[in-house]
């Protein structure tokens, strides 16, 4: 008696969004099956893996990072190294130094870094702010202007600044924009509706549905992604069909399990190894739930996660 499978191939699909200048472009999304269900129908595009590079440099206390970036002193050099990381398909430059509660670097300095990084790499670029909404708005507008025509992806527009960012970054300078909301399908949809009412084409945006490290309320992330993908595919909800981009590295490396030194928790073993597994395990769960791209830090995580994706195609 043979088994009768019923593949779930939908008449709706996740939007395909291409960012990056011609010659180094990358397309996210586009599939008409549930996340990673390549056995139902070939995926239009595999989920992508990007590398996070901070403008404050990598964490030198992590031996694997120190070895990987050895000799790369400047941020553009580090970005170039990251772009060549096996498995990496894009670079995400995080402007941590802009944080008014931290280094409070000027907008001009940050824009200069972004331009230098852009020139130094041969992969598409994502530029991420510092999480301070006011500063990010100002900063990302200037970044959009400085890189006009380069088709970069900016993270992120929130409820507070989607108008400014949508109007300038997308409509004036032709960049791609990520909408960010707090782990809730309704908030995600509302932001997309507001952006489209502003005239920002859905085809120019992606979503960050929020992220969390495994063990830290990840059920909300997983269920939000499950529900968003179901609505996008089974109900053809155009306001939820944007590809999902999830920053994993910053969450994974900032929980206790990845921060405590071995001396503080000898039983737990190597801190680097804990950080890598936290990053890999969180990323794999995100991809299974629906991320169309994940952003990671460690070369070993990037390699492993991209190999897992390849093995599933």
């Amino acid at each position: 008696m043979p088994f009768t499978d019923k593949p779930q191939v939908f008449n709706a699909a996740i939007n395909a969004l291409t960012f990056g200048e011609a010659g180094r472009e990358l397309t996210l999304g586009g599939s008409n099956v549930y996340p990673l269900y390549a056995f139902d129908a070939p995926l239009a595009n595999a989920p992508r893996v990007g590398v996070e590079v901070s403008d404050q440099g990598y964490e030198k206390a992590i031996p694997g990072l120190a070895a990987f970036y050895a000799g790369a002193e400047t941020i553009p050099e580090q970005a170039a190294r990251a772009a060549a990381m096996p498995g990496a398909e894009f670079v995400c430059l995080k402007l941590d130094s802009a944080d008014p509660n931290g280094d409070n670097a000027s907008v001009e300095d940050c824009v200069a870094t972004v331009k230098a990084v852009y020139e130094a790499i041969d992969k598409p670029l994502v530029v991420m702010g510092c999480k301070n909404v006011e500063k990010d708005t100002e900063l990302l507008v200037k970044v959009a202007e400085a890189l006009q025509g380069k088709n970069v992806l900016l993270m992120s527009a929130r409820e507070e600044d989607y108008k400014t960012l949508g109007a300038s970054a997308v409509l004036a300078y032709g960049q791609k924009l990520c909408g960010e909301s707090a782990v809730d399908i309704n908030l995600a949809k509302q932001l997309n509706v507001l952006m489209s009412q502003l005239g920002v084409p859905a085809a120019s945006t992606v979503m960050n549905l929020g992220s969390a490290a495994a063990g830290y309320g990840f059920e909300y992330v997983a269920s939000t992604m499950d529900r968003v993908k179901s609505a996008a595919l089974t109900q053809n909800d155009a306001m939820l069909q944007m590809p999902v981009v999830t920053p994993v590295g910053s969450e994974a490396w900032s929980v206790k399990e990845a921060l405590l030194e071995e001396a503080e928790e000898p039983e737990w073993g190597s801190r680097e190894e804990r950080g890598i597994q936290m990053e890999i395990i969180t990323a794999a769960a995100c991809l299974a739930s629906g991320s169309d791209a994940v952003i990671l830090r460690h070369p070993e995580s990037v390699k492993t996660v991209s190999e897992m994706i390849s093995a599933l195609l």
């Binding site: 490290a213 495994a214 063990g215 830290y216 309320g217 990840f218 059920e219 997983a222 994974a252 399990e257 039983e267 737990w268 073993g269 190597s270 190894e273 804990r274 890598i276 597994q277 936290m278 395990i281 969180t282 769960a285």
Partner: peptide, 17 residues
């Protein structure tokens, strides 16, 4: 090992609530 256990058991506890 703990490196796998800490995130995996945390993930499981989250998903199966």
């Amino acid at each position: 090992d703990y490196a796998k256990a800490l995130p995996l058991y945390g993930l499981r506890q989250n998903l199966f609530t």
